[in-house]
């Protein structure tokens, strides 16, 4: 009896302290949620608001007015459209090459019986800790005559050692040696095993690789900044840079009269609005993938962290 009584009172006391804790936790987490979500939400509502309201800072919680002028400007801009198509092309080709290089290597290194395993692993580990740096790499790309071609964006980074290790760890746990041995008894070699058994069993890791590499290509601007010279070949991120950061929207007028100043101000407002719309448009591919990605990428991080 007494025992039960103390237990009950204990529970009451404990739940009071813990209730305060739960409420504090709820407030902190909600605050974090707002801090992260509001800027993203703001971009969306600003992109469909009236240009004057956006540049005047009147947009807060809901769109003010309604206008798709920003989007119209984005679609009128040939640079944006062309580079958007370029980026889709680079991302698709680049990701395919990434997979062709990464997946077979990862499979091979997951096979314990592979005689060159130690050597190949060491060969890749070295590159994780030392690198030649920006300029020597640039010179190699230049000497390979890849400057200003799409290959400069795709080939040098075709193998990400980190991603390869993630895939290797996956293969190690999902394709046990016994499975291969059983297949060998039935006269199956490595090639057949890889294509007929390993790949069909590895859809999850292939999805993770597509997402990691694909987003990497889509968001990449540094290689393009280094290697691409011709504007018609620019990927989207480089065009975004000139519009969003360097402010090179098409604005060129000499301001002399008040009317012109008025017109200039209106145009500046439109340019600002266009930037918000542009951010949305450039994120569309990632946004479409996001719900699908979300299921997989947490798994990717976990597999990667197992390697220890």
């Amino acid at each position: 009896m007494a025992k039960a009584k103390t237990k009950v009172s204990n529970k009451v006391k404990e739940s009071r302290a813990d209730k305060a804790f739960d409420i504090t936790l709820f407030i902190i987490l909600t605050l974090i949620l707002i801090i992260v979500a509001y800027p993203l939400y703001f971009v969306i509502i600003a992109s469909i608001s009236d240009p004057q309201a956006v540049s005047g800072g009147d947009v807060t919680f809901l769109p003010v007015g309604f206008s798709l002028d920003g989007y119209a400007e984005v679609f009128k801009d040939t640079r944006v459209m062309r580079s958007f198509v370029n980026s889709i092309f680079y991302t698709t080709v680049g990701t395919c090459i990434n997979l062709i290089v990464t997946i077979p290597t990862a499979y091979t290194l997951s096979r314990r019986q592979f005689a060159g395993k130690k050597f190949v692993t060491f060969f890749y580990m070295v590159t994780m800790f030392v690198s030649g740096g920006m300029i020597p790499t640039y010179l190699v790309v230049k000497n390979m005559h890849m400057l200003d071609t799409m290959w400069s964006l795709i080939v040098p980074g075709a193998m990400s050692v980190y991603n390869m290790i993630v895939a290797r760890t996956f293969f190690e746990s999902s394709l046990p040696e016994e499975l291969f041995e059983a297949a060998t008894v039935d006269g199956c070699g490595h090639t057949k095993f890889f294509f007929k058994i390993a790949l069909p069993l590895s859809k999850a890791i292939i999805a993770i690789m597509v997402l990691y590499y694909g987003i990497g290509h889509w968001n990449n601007y540094f290689s393009a900044l280094l290697y691409m010279k011709t504007e018609s070949k620019y990927p989207l991120q480089l065009v975004l840079r000139s519009i969003l950061i360097s402010n090179e929207a098409n604005l060129s007028m000499a301001v002399t009269t008040p009317e012109m100043q008025q017109a200039l101000q209106e145009q500046q407002a439109l340019v600002d609005l266009m930037k918000y719309s542009l951010i949305i448009v450039s994120s569309i591919p990632v946004m479409i993938l996001y719900p699908f990605i979300q299921k997989h990428f947490v798994k990717g991080v976990m597999i990667g962290s197992v390697k220890g």
Binding site: T105, F123, Y124, P136
Partner: peptide, 16 residues
């Protein structure tokens, strides 16, 4: 299977 990766890594990581 490992050859393409080795070649690319050699050219773009080891030569630099």
């Amino acid at each position: 299977f490992v050859l393409p990766g080795l070649i690319i890594t050699f050219i773009f990581s080891y030569i630099p």
